[in-house]
Amino acid sequence: MSISRDDIEKVALLARIRVNDQQVAELEQDLGNILDLVDQLQAADTSNTAPMAHPLDAVQRLRADEVTETNQREAYQAIAPATEAGLYLVPKVID
């Protein structure tokens, strides 16, 4: 199955990855090959098969509703690219 340049640009935008024209051309080739590989799936008869999200048929454990964390802001913000007044800074958010 081939993938169009439009699709690549759309996917790149969804994934928030900037791509230039040359990269789009390369990705068209690479992603097309990968999709050809995964298209083998279509041959499998899965009409009576339920999807499997996890290898083990386990169920979720729930945690007691207790506060176990303390304020570690200083440690976390020490590794942040930009902070001020305890806030993470980003270019202006417009709704």
Partner: peptide
């Protein structure tokens, strides 16, 4: 066509 199908095939493999 992709994700759900792959998860079903995953069960066949298991």
């Amino acid at each position: 066509a992709y994700y759900l199908k792959a998860q079903k095939v995953r069960r066949l493999i298991q």
